[in-house]
């Protein structure tokens, strides 16, 4: 109940004083360059990594990326840059 309250206040703040939503609400910020690169900020760790599939932990739920020839260009605690041919990006709620 309390977290819901907090969420609501945050949403209100975002709407009224125009703060970026990813900062306020710990959402991932995803930048894609065509199908070549995908750059994700605010992830919470790597869950699975293969040539064709990458699974990332988020604060809420997971992010699933499908494609081919995946290479992690860089990985930092909260950022990841993925290279390859990206076909699909899914949000998975748990």
């Amino acid at each position: 109940m309390a977290s819901k309250w907090g969420q609501n206040i945050k949403k209100l703040l975002v709407r009224t004083i125009d703060l970026p939503q990813d900062v306020m609400m710990d959402l991932p910020r995803i930048t894609m360059i065509g199908q070549l690169h995908i750059y994700i900020e605010n992830h919470r760790g790597l869950l699975a990594f293969t040539d064709t599939e990458v699974r990332l932990m988020l604060k809420k739920g997971q992010l699933l990326i499908r494609g081919n020839e995946f290479v992690i260009r860089t990985i930092l605690p909260e950022e990841i840059m993925l290279q390859g041919k990206i076909d699909q990006v899914f949000f998975i709620k748990e």
Partner: peptide, 21 residues
């Protein structure tokens, strides 16, 4: 659990790049 290893590395502040399966 190689993914876990990478997570552990990044969490320790070690820079890892060009990860390939």
């Amino acid at each position: 659990g190689s993914e876990r290893l990478i997570n552990a590395l990044t969490r320790r502040g070690i820079h890892v790049w060009d990860v390939k399966r």
